[in-house]
């Protein structure tokens, strides 16, 4: 009897320990929000919300801490990465999910996985050594090779695996009966893909793209390495608006990482305010992705 009650006590104790680890994630999320916000309060108070968000002059020496240029930098590089990366990612996902023979799948799927695992500094280095010299050859005055274009290309490759794997999952989750039904009606395989499979998997595919956006907004080191890190507001180098992408820029993430190690006082607080803006953006982006994922899973995909 005594031995048995010992077992019961152990059982209960373990349960409480496990419970604490289960709610640890909640504590960490709250702690992250609390500490980043707490450290930024000084900046919000002394500089002011609009002076931080809407001013584009960042001069820590003269107590000017506008981050609009970095917000624009982050958004511009994300748009660039989406424009370059999404078609390729979706093409690869459709190919993997619907078209590729088994053997090709067995080769390509680990490749996409490996692409996701390569460290961001390696992408950054590749960008510096290979991409930047190529871009530098574009004959536009003031073009250094470093800038939004190099950053967009690097980022496009980095978000490719995220979007591909989520979109492929969404495509695979579409039940085969949908495909059989469409093919039986005389549709070709391609018609079935575009008119039946992709619409049915739409929410999941959109969620994948949004998560790609989240990944793009959050990328730090590779961006620092190829974007030029200029605090100036990015603008076209010549009359041609496309040269906007040859302009140097800085992302929100880069702003934090480059300066945090030596910043003190209000400067440090302003960097935490940059973090708050980034955090808020990411939360919005991820919440919308989650909304689409929920919608996807509410589609009756398991009915036989």
């Amino acid at each position: 009897m005594k031995e048995k009650s010992g077992r019961m006590i152990a059982d209960q104790t373990v349960k409480y320990i496990l419970f604490i680890s289960a709610i640890l994630s909640i504590i960490i999320v709250l702690a992250i929000a609390y500490f980043i916000f707490r450290e930024s309060i000084q900046a919000w108070k002394e500089i002011g919300f609009t002076n931080i968000i809407l001013k584009s002059v960042w001069r820590p020496g003269q107590d000017q801490y506008g981050i609009l240029a970095m917000i624009v930098g982050s958004i511009a590089v994300t748009i660039g990465a989406i424009v370059l990366g999404v078609p390729l990612a979706l093409g690869t996902a459709i190919f993997l999910g619907e078209i590729a023979p088994k053997g090709v799948q067995a080769l390509l799927r680990p490749a996409v996985q490996l692409l996701a695992g390569i460290p961001s500094v390696v992408y950054g280095l590749f960008g510096m050594v290979v991409l930047v010299p190529i871009i530098r050859r574009i004959n536009v005055p003031g073009n250094s090779g470093y800038g939004l274009l190099a950053a967009s290309i690097v980022l496009a490759v980095m978000i490719l695996p995220t979007i591909t794997s989520i979109a492929e999952d969404a495509i695979r989750a579409v039940p085969d009966s949908y495909r059989s039904g469409s093919l039986a009606l005389g549709a070709t395989k391609w018609q079935t893909i575009t008119k039946v499979v992709l619409p049915a998997g739409r929410s999941g595919i959109i969620a994948g793209i949004i998560l790609g956006v989240g990944r793009a907004l959050g990328e730090t080191m590779a961006m620092i390495m190829v974007i030029g890190n200029s605090v100036k507001f990015p603008k076209p180098l010549t009359a041609n608006p496309l040269t906007f992408y040859l302009s140097k820029a800085r992302t929100l993430t880069g702003n934090i990482a480059v300066e945090i190690s030596y910043a003190t006082g209000i400067h440090e607080s302003a960097l935490f305010a940059t973090g708050v803006v980034l955090f808020a953006l990411i939360i919005i982006v991820n919440a919308s992705a989650r909304w689409f994922i929920k919608r996807q899973s509410s589609i009756p995909t398991t009915r036989q």
Binding site: S25, V29, I260
Partner: peptide, 24 residues
């Protein structure tokens, strides 16, 4: 909420973890 928190953690960019680690 715990499940939601795990999802949230998975989506937070690493520089934010860095800032958090630096502050705490």
């Amino acid at each position: 909420i715990a499940n939601f928190a795990v999802e949230t953690l998975a989506g937070i960019p690493s520089i934010i973890y860095g800032l958090f680690g630096y502050a705490l």
